[in-house]
Design a protein around this nucleic acid. Structure first.
Length: 637
DNA sequence: CTAGGGTTAG
């Protein structure tokens, strides 16, 4: 022992028996295997990885083995530290001669490899396991599910059943995530009921989630409603399901029910609630949700949802200040802000932000560039758009996809370059989808290209025989060139297929109550007063030079009645109602289901000037901010 | 030792 103590000053830390043992072995002293094991156990439980590993080496030399629980602690320690090579070393140790690792210990190793994303290693280990229990199988299935290796996950589930291993709730919540077909979910679902696991909250939320992902919202709701006890994740699953499928009403209803049931809102439910407000364009409600967001103000996803809500609900100033205040911003935050600026008519600002992103933001992705091209198309920035489109592959490594082509068609089409648009179509390697044809059709309408419009409308109706807009436009085109036989034919087709024109509708929120108007607005109790004030307003506008623009009657079937119905377009009624009920300084916010027509656009600009009002109209794809005789879209929409 | 929920797109 004297020889050892003379070495002590050279050891930085107090020596442990494993150090002593390794010294001892070089000095050929006898080994105390029980104190070696003791130290190893201590180091493992204290998560002292370096010393535990040294002890492990010593144990190997002396053929000393610890128990499985201690080893599994060590593996967990490797996992927690991200120590891959140490983990592999332990793997080698427990598979060396003279030790037979228990199944649960190998499971721990399996899990470690999976968490390190070393699927190959996990796979090899799994195959050489002498015995595989439900945890082993579930670990592999879960690994495949997380890596989107869906077929493999499902195959493993089948193999597991064939081997006679009974799946548990862990297995189902993993394997469900890998289902791509409804029939698979149905089979698993009945399996779950047979085994009696349907009341498990994990299984239930996984079921709700997968039904929702496959678009089976009713099934998701059934699973939810059959539930006796819920936890917050189950609630969040069902709220998220409806929020993600743009059923904001149902999502908000469920959100309120959740609060009534005594659950507090958390990051996930608030995110979904915001998304619901976004899809309903309910700014005021969104602002109420914002109040609850404050206590999670460092949550990136939630902030992104908040940002998007303000962008899409026309609260651009709030959106900007949120964006500027966000401590952490990812590519989604930037993309949201860029698209948001573009949607609100601030395309130049959107492009400036994109330049700023290149120097001090994350790498732009596919969606970012959709926003950039969208900004170009909505401001008529043809050259800029062409530049970004042609350089996106070289500069950002992004291949143009459907959405990018769609933006370009829109850009060229709106700018009247229909020939270039057709050229682009021919260069595309994908076929035109309905949305692209609609884009083209719209451009044709604006630029009066009857031949291409006719083709586009026919193509649209081939793909979607229920597309009201295409019938209406086709019929309008024919009407415009006095081809009354063709008009009648289109009408007959519409009737035969049971297609009805979606009535134009605008709405405005007054005292937390939504007032909706349709053409003529007959159903509103105050319609007589509204019409009176509207007529008076129109006379005053005419006296300062307003000329109703009947050219846009081409948008609506009902418009054949001419200027008089134009006069009672739903947005005009909503604007007048807003003037009647809002103080002058309050912004009049109007939502509508169809795009605004040129006459109403002009009307809104003039009213904004004459009445000194700030008017915001949201149509299905963008915002118009009217102020002082101008619109944020610069009359380009 | 194994499991479930939230954000950007024409």
């Amino acid at each position: 022992m004297r020889a050892i103590s003379s070495l002590l000053p050279y050891l930085k830390r107090l020596p442990c028996s494993s150090c002593l043992t390794s010294l001892a072995s070089t000095l050929s002293s006898p080994v105390n295997s029980s104190s070696l094991l003791n130290d190893f156990t201590n180091f493992c439980y204290k998560r002292d990885l370096p010393r535990a590993m040294r002890a492990l080496e010593a144990m190997e030399r002396h053929k000393v083995w610890a128990d499985a629980i201690t080893y599994s602690e060590l593996v967990k320690c490797c996992l927690a530290r991200g120590a891959i090579s140490e983990g592999k070393r332990v793997h080698k140790h427990i598979f060396s001669n003279g030790y037979e690792p228990k199944t649960f210990l190998i499971n721990t190793m399996l899990n470690m490899y999976v968490k390190f994303s070393l699927l190959e290693e996990a796979q090899v280990l799994f195959e050489k396991m002498p015995e595989r229990n439900v945890v082993s199988w579930t670990t592999m299935i879960s690994a495949y599910s997380n890596s989107k290796l869906n077929t493999r996950a499902l195959n493993f589930f089948v193999l597991m059943i064939r081997e006679g291993v009974m799946p548990n709730m862990f297995t189902f919540s993993s394997v469900l995530r890998s289902c791509e077909r409804l029939s698979d979910v149905k089979q698993l679902h009945s399996c779950i009921i047979k085994i009696g696991l349907e009341s498990d909250v994990f299984v239930r939320s996984a079921l709700i989630d997968i039904y929702s992902k496959l678009g089976e919202l009713q099934e998701a709701l059934n699973v939810f409603n059959e539930m006796v006890t819920a936890d917050s994740v189950v609630w969040n699953s069902i709220i998220g399901a409806f929020a993600q499928h743009s059923d904001g009403d149902e999502a908000l209803y469920l959100y309120k029910s959740m609060r009534r049931a005594g659950f507090l809102s958390d990051q996930s439910s608030l995110t979904s609630a915001l998304r619901a407000c976004t899809s309903l364009a309910m700014l005021e409600l969104g602002q109420q949700v914002h109040v609850h967001v404050v206590k999670f103000d460092r949550d990136l996803i939630l902030n992104n949802a908040l940002l998007d809500m303000y962008c899409k609900c026309g609260g651009l100033e709030d959106a900007k200040s949120i964006f500027n205040r966000m401590i952490e911003k990812d590519v989604i935050s930037w993309s949201t802000m860029i698209a948001g600026l573009a949607q609100n008519g601030c395309s130049i600002e959107a492009l400036n932000l994109f330049h700023h992103m290149k120097t001090s933001g994350p790498k732009p992705n596919y969606i970012t560039l959709v926003g950039v091209l969208f900004a170009c198309s909505h401001a008529g920035l043809v050259n800029e758009g062409l530049y970004y489109f042609h350089s996106m592959k070289d500069l950002y490594g992004i291949d143009p996809g459907r959405e990018h082509y769609g933006c370009m068609l829109d850009l060229l089409g709106r700018a009247g370059k229909l020939d270039d648009a057709v050229k682009l179509i021919n260069e595309m390697n994908c076929k035109l989808d309905v949305v692209m044809w609609r884009t083209l059709l719209d451009a044709c309408r604006v630029h009066q290209n009857v031949d291409l419009a006719t083709l586009a409308a026919k193509e649209i109706l081939k793909m979607d025989p229920q597309d009201t807009g295409a019938y209406v436009l086709l019929s309008n085109i024919y009407a415009n060139s006095k081809r009354w036989d063709d008009v009648a034919k289109v009408r007959r087709n519409m009737r035969r297929r049971g297609v009805r024109k979606e009535p134009g509708c605008s709405w405005i929120d007054v005292n937390k109550q939504i007032h909706a108007f349709t053409l003529g607005g007959k159903s509103h109790p105050q319609i007589n007063e509204i019409n009176r004030q509207l007529n008076e307003l129109i006379s005053r506008l005419i006296s300062v030079g307003y000329v109703p623009d009947a050219n846009f009657v081409l948008q609506d079937l009902e418009e054949e009645q001419g200027e008089n119905s134009l006069r009672y377009h739903s947005e005009k009624l909503a604007i007048v109602f807003g003037i009647m009920n809002y103080p002058r300084e309050k912004t009049i916010r109007i939502g509508k289901n169809l795009r605004i027509c040129g006459d109403c656009h002009l009307f809104a600009k003039l009213v904004a000037k004459l009445e000194q009002r700030h008017i915001v109209i949201r149509d299905p794809i963008r915002y118009h901010h009217f102020q002082d005789g101008f619109c944020s879209c610069n009359d380009y929409w």
